[in-house]
């Protein structure tokens, strides 16, 4: 890994954000809008506080954490799409840049996005609804780290599909993550799922993070089992999708499609 090459790619993306309002909106406007809509729903539901205790904490906390996963995935796929839109893949991969360095740069961009979006949402949640995400305490750190990893996994997987199937598969950059939302049990516990779907959710690391968060808020018990499951699954999947990305990269080089991805 050559860090100067990773830095070069990160700087290339920062140049883009520096003067692009639509790209900045992606970081500020959409997360803010999400928070406003869900915030009002939460305020309404809070009127039933007796029947559903801690509803504000559950829903707003879940929303902010879901956005961590979503933006983490977007950070990877949008960075790749930017190169397709700019027809820049040939310039990059005809340079000494390796596929691993490319992925590393998209992961750094993803982290930047997650940090920016989390700050926007946390501050807005506190200002408008008096909700502090830090109510979760230090457990917030491993929760976020795991969701970032899950976002990377979905992002690298989606990127590989776009690389393999071309720009036609571009829509996956926005839609793929929502395929995982029902089985991530973001806003409801895993036990409400039918048993067959519960089995599918169980192998989804994000579901364990959200289960862990709810458990922590409800009982204050350390979510060690949930975090262990989430971390273990994340590491296995991350290794698998990185391997698959490299394999897809080589298949595309063999078929000559790498230089035609944007066509």
């Amino acid at each position: 890994m050559a860090y100067h090459r990773i830095a070069a790619l990160v700087i290339r993306h920062l140049y883009l954000y520096r003067r692009s309002l639509p790209r900045l909106m992606e970081i500020i406007y959409w997360p803010f809008l999400d928070l406003v809509v869900w915030g009002f729903i939460t305020v309404y539901l809070a009127t039933f506080q007796g029947e559903m205790p801690a509803v504000v904490t559950f829903l707003l906390g879940a929303l902010i954490l879901w956005d961590v996963l979503f933006r983490s995935q977007q950070g990877i796929t949008i960075s790749f799409l930017e190169e397709i839109w700019a027809r820049n893949l040939m310039n990059l991969f005809a340079s000494p840049l390796t596929p691993s360095e490319f992925l590393a740069a998209t992961m750094v961009m993803s982290l930047f996005k997650v940090i920016a979006v989390s700050m926007v949402m946390s501050v807005c949640a506190w200002l408008f609804y008096g909700y502090s995400v830090f109510i979760i305490g230090l457990w917030l750190i491993p929760f976020i780290m795991n969701l970032v990893l899950t976002g990377w996994i979905i992002g690298v997987f989606t990127t590989s599909l776009i690389m393999r199937f071309g720009q036609e598969a571009e829509v996956l950059a926005w839609s793929m993550v929502f395929l995982f939302q029902p089985i991530s049990c973001v806003f409801y516990p895993m036990e409400v799922l039918p048993s067959w779907l519960r089995a599918v959710a169980w192998i989804n690391p994000a579901a364990h993070v959200f289960e862990g968060m709810r458990g922590l808020l409800a009982t204050h018990a350390p979510p060690l089992t949930s975090l262990s499951l989430a971390s273990g699954l994340n590491l296995v999947y991350l290794g698998a999708v990185i391997f698959w990305f490299h394999h897809t990269f080589n298949v595309c080089k063999d078929r000559g499609s790498l230089v035609r991805v944007g066509e």
Partner: peptide, 8 residues
């Protein structure tokens, strides 16, 4: 500048 950085 990006290209120059890419090639170190």
């Amino acid at each position: 500048s990006v290209i120059a950085r890419l090639y170190g």
